[in-house]
Design a protein around this nucleic acid. Sequence first.
DNA 1: AATCAGTTCAAGAGATTGCTTGATTAACAC
DNA 2: GTGTTAATCAAGCAATCTCTTGAACTGATT
Lengths: 221, 221
Amino acid sequence: MGDRRAKTVLYDALAEAAKALANGRRAELVDVLAQGERSVEELAEEIDQTVANTSQHLQRLLKAGLVTSRRDGTRIYYSLSSPVVGTLWRTMRQAAELHVAELDSLASDYLGDRSKLNTVTRDQLKARLRQGDVVVLDVRPEPEFTAGHIRGAISVPPQDLKSRLGEIPDGADVVAYCRGPYCVYADDAVRLLTRRGINAARLEDGFPEWAAAQLPVARSR
Amino acid sequence: MGDRRAKTVLYDALAEAAKALANGRRAELVDVLAQGERSVEELAEEIDQTVANTSQHLQRLLKAGLVTSRRDGTRIYYSLSSPVVGTLWRTMRQAAELHVAELDSLASDYLGDRSKLNTVTRDQLKARLRQGDVVVLDVRPEPEFTAGHIRGAISVPPQDLKSRLGEIPDGADVVAYCRGPYCVYADDAVRLLTRRGINAARLEDGFPEWAAAQLPVARSR
DNA sequence: AATCAGTTCAAGAGATTGCTTGATTAACAC
DNA sequence: GTGTTAATCAAGCAATCTCTTGAACTGATT
């Protein structure tokens, strides 16, 4: 015991968890799965890859124990195997944000200029929810809202927002949120609402971070 | 904005942090660096690799922003660039422990059978330190003790323990700790002490976890 | 039993990674 | 200046990874 070979094997095994996340497409998969379980086909669509390739990535995550799968009829649904995996992904993101200088510019290449978007922190939103003077929009696809959402939020999937603007009371303050800091839905929603003269802001991050912070959540049905 | 190419680039960049940790030798490096800064040569010795190879791994960590370096004379010292990196490593370990079934057996291949070793948790040790009825031994190499240690601990580097057994008061309860859950020093120390009839236990993990839990630490000079 | 949708498996090309070896650079002592 | 020590760089080979393509498998439905 205490010998080099065993140490190598042990640390190689520990590094397997990192290897599983060490790919942009698999990172995207984990990011989506943090919202709730998904079928292979849906996941393939989310990450713009073939089903075969997505399946292989999922096998890799499965082998590392980061996700689990269950069959329902002809479909197979994948989900994160524990909240620790979500924490791991968030911590990794945080490390990258802190230490990779170019990340900001890559983020705005994808998300567009955020400097003009109003932002509220989790704590601010929590306080305003308690006061009850804010309309909170969950702008993720509906199944993700069903799987879990901020208590008091209304589900308005991205493609429905335009046609449902009328539901927002005059003069209301709106906060939109989606999957996390690198998700475009809330940004797009805030831009649209602002253009229509509605006072709107984006939650600084998304539902998984809200839930991880032990803030009040709800689940449909 | 919101297009696939930019999203790919962004998530690839986020995955860089994982790639940096996605290698057993680099994981070992981070594990050691969590104790404090080290020179390339020392690190090479710790991970049983050539200096050239160690240097390349360090470059990789540097490029990902996980470590920083400074020159002092002819030596270059590396250290973790922030506490987040330590958290990342611990979270990764935790994920592997939870989800990789074989990890237990790999750990005991390296560390030996731990079932007969007494263990105390951080909270237990905290309470006993407050009562003052415990001798705490830091069995890491001396520079790591100097860089930071559990308040009230005594530095007894691994190779010195045998010759300094006389310093331990008769009938004392001893707790030994080292770098973390996969470090052999504390295990070896507890085995030695127990064989000599001294009541000894191992702290469940090491100094970085103690410090991360905001428990009382001290620094020499 | 036959068919179908959803998923996984298998094989291969091109890129990346990990370790080795030998040369090069940087700081310091003389 | 020369010599020494510490670290990095560069090139090369074997192993691994990523994506593609096409075939094979698995339940559900007919």
